[in-house]
Amino acid sequence: MLSDEDFKAVFGMTRSAFANLPLWKQQNLKKEKGLF
């Protein structure tokens, strides 16, 4: 599990902003970052 700081560094957004994205968009971002 990423820390909040690492999460923001990897995804360029906060966890709450990420959580507001549609599920497909979350999955695409995870795949792009190799976290899926």
Rank of each mutant, 00 (worst) to 15 (best):
Asp6Asn: 08
Leu29Asn: 01
Ala19Arg: 09
Gln27His: 13
Gly12Gln: 05
Glu5Ala: 10
Pro22Tyr: 02
Lys33Val: 11
Thr14Glu: 08
Lys33Tyr: 10
Met13Tyr: 08
Leu2Cys: 11
Lys8Met: 14
Lys33His: 11
Thr14Asn: 06
Lys8His: 12
Leu23Val: 12
Phe36Ser: 12
Trp24His: 07
Ser16Leu: 12
Gly34Phe: 08
Arg15Ala: 06
Leu23Ala: 09
Glu32Phe: 07
Arg15Ser: 05
Ala17Glu: 15
Trp24Gly: 04
Lys25Glu: 15
Leu29Ser: 02
Leu29Phe: 04
Lys31Leu: 09
Lys31Ser: 09
Ser16Cys: 00
Lys25Trp: 08
Lys33Glu: 04
Leu29Tyr: 06
Lys8Asp: 07
Gly12Pro: 00
Asp4Ile: 03
Arg15Val: 07
Leu35Asn: 09
Leu23Tyr: 13
Leu2Ala: 04
Leu35Trp: 15
Asn28Gly: 08
Leu2Trp: 10
Lys8Val: 14
Leu23Glu: 10
Glu5His: 07
Ser16Tyr: 10
Ser3Met: 04
Gln26Phe: 01
Asn28His: 14
Phe11His: 03
Ser3Ile: 04
Phe11Gly: 00
Lys25His: 13
Phe11Lys: 00
Ser16Met: 12
Val10Cys: 05
Leu35Met: 13
Thr14His: 03
Phe7Pro: 00
Lys31Ile: 13
Gln27Met: 11
Ala17Asp: 15
Val10Lys: 11
Pro22Val: 02
Asp6Leu: 09
Ser3Gln: 04
Ala17Ile: 06
Phe36His: 13
Met13Pro: 00
Ala17Gly: 04
Phe36Asn: 12
Lys30Pro: 02
Thr14Gly: 06
Phe7Lys: 00
Lys25Asp: 09
Asp4Arg: 02
Thr14Tyr: 03
Leu35Ile: 12
Arg15Met: 07
Phe7Gln: 00
Leu23Asp: 10
Gln27Thr: 11
Asp4Phe: 03
Ala17Met: 10
Lys31Asp: 09
Glu32Lys: 09
Met1Gly: 12
Thr14Trp: 02
Lys30Ala: 14
Leu35Lys: 09
Thr14Lys: 02
Glu5Gln: 08
Ser3Thr: 13
Lys30Phe: 15
Lys8Ser: 07
Gln27Gly: 06
Leu23Ser: 09
Phe18Leu: 03
Ala19Leu: 14
Leu2Pro: 05
Ser3Glu: 07
Phe18Thr: 15
Asp6Pro: 02
Ala9Val: 12
Gly12Ala: 03
Asp6Gly: 08
Ala9Thr: 13
Pro22Arg: 01
Pro22Lys: 01
Glu5Ile: 07
Asp6Val: 07
Gln26Ala: 02
Phe11Ile: 04
Glu5Gly: 06
Phe7Gly: 00
Glu5Met: 08
Ala9Asp: 11
Asn20Ile: 08
Lys25Val: 14
Phe36Leu: 14
Asn20His: 10
Thr14Ala: 05
Ala19Asn: 13
Leu29Pro: 02
Leu35Gly: 10
Ser3Ala: 06
Pro22Phe: 01
Gly34Pro: 04
Lys31Tyr: 11
Ser16Ala: 14
Arg15Cys: 05
Leu35Glu: 09
Lys33Asn: 08
Gly34Tyr: 08
Leu35Ala: 05
Ser3Arg: 05
Gln27Ile: 15
Gln27Phe: 11
Lys30Ile: 15
Met13Glu: 02
Gly34Thr: 06
Leu23Asn: 07
Ala17Gln: 14
Lys25Ala: 13
Pro22Ile: 02
Gln26Arg: 05
Lys8Arg: 10
Met13Ile: 07
Glu32Arg: 08
Asn20Tyr: 05
Phe11Asp: 01
Leu35Pro: 07
Ser3Phe: 04
Asn28Lys: 15
Met13Lys: 01
Gln26Val: 01
Ala9Glu: 13
Asp4Gly: 03
Val10Arg: 09
Ala9Trp: 07
Lys8Gln: 12
Leu2Gln: 06
Ala17Ser: 06
